[in-house]
């Protein structure tokens, strides 16, 4: 079996965010980029599945300029079999989904996994858009995946509970929390092997972005915390009622 795993190249979760060029661009200076946290969990679970069913080839794909290659190499070091970079600036979610759909059609993949949400644009769009372009079912925010007897079994969180689904191939699953517990990290051997694994660069296809960021903003600075004495908690109740008017 073959799976296409869509990997975002995103700022480390501890990054302090800044904008540049009149607040029209994200300032990449001093930012460490990582594999999106959900995709990291997805990769971990797919490797467990590979160990279980034996026959599973994991292709990591990113739509991005050359600077994203270290992120793809990291996915290879963790255990992906090969990687594809679509050489383009990811203009918006629709543009990215179009590129990935094109790659999907060129290969002989059985299903696609994406993260449920990127931690830069927080769009939660690419996976579902891809599913609609390919006319596949989509299962969003999947918290568990297993493959048995030619069928996939997935679990997802719904409002106020969870749902277990059985799905025929092909499909798109967007991975959420619970997909795996602890992400795997690359071993020394994995890092060595990653250098020899194929990372293919393909040209982008024509697609028009439908959205554009015209300006970024930082949140308003918070006013200083007002402290209440631990021996006088009634004061907090009063402040929440009279000042914040929240209770």
């Amino acid at each position: 079996m073959k799976v296409l795993l869509c990997i975002g190249h995103v700022p480390d979760t501890t990054s302090k965010i800044k904008f540049t060029n009149n607040d029209t661009e994200f300032d990449k200076n001093n930012i460490q980029f990582i594999i999106g946290p959900y995709e990291e969990l997805a990769l971990t679970r797919l490797l467990e599945l590979k160990e279980k069913i034996g026959d599973l080839n994991i292709t990591a794909i990113n739509v991005g300029p050359a600077e994203t290659e270290p992120t793809l190499r990291k996915a290879l070091a963790v255990g992906a079999d090969d990687a594809i970079r679509v050489d383009a600036e990811p203009m918006d979610a629709f543009f990215v989904a179009k590129q990935i759909a094109e790659v999907y059609k060129q290969g002989d993949y059985d299903f696609v996994v994406t993260g449920k949400e990127s931690i830069d644009y927080n769009g939660a769009q690419v996976g579902e858009m891809l599913a609609e372009i390919l006319e596949f079912p989509s299962i969003s925010g999947t918290s568990f995946i297993d493959i048995e007897g030619g069928k996939a079994k997935l679990e997802r969180e719904i409002d106020g509970g969870k749902e277990i689904l059985e799905v025929d191939f092909p499909f798109v699953s967007t991975a959420g929390k619970g997909f795996a517990i602890e992400p795997r990290i690359p071993s020394m051997r994995g890092i060595m092997m990653a250098r020899k694994k194929p990372l293919n660069v393909v040209a982008a296809t024509e697609a028009a972005a439908k959205t554009k960021v015209t300006r970024f903003y930082l949140p308003e600075p918070k006013s200083a915390c007002k402290y209440v004495d631990a021996e006088n908690v009634e004061e907090l109740v009063r402040l929440l009622h009279e000042e914040a008017k929240i209770i």
């Binding site: 700022p11 965010i17 830069d120 644009y121 960021v213 970024f216 903003y217 930082l218 949140p219």
Partner: peptide
């Protein structure tokens, strides 16, 4: 955007 560390104006075309 950026998990609440920032905001952005989006133009929908």
């Amino acid at each position: 955007v950026y998990s609440g560390k920032g905001f952005a104006d989006y133009e929908l075309n």
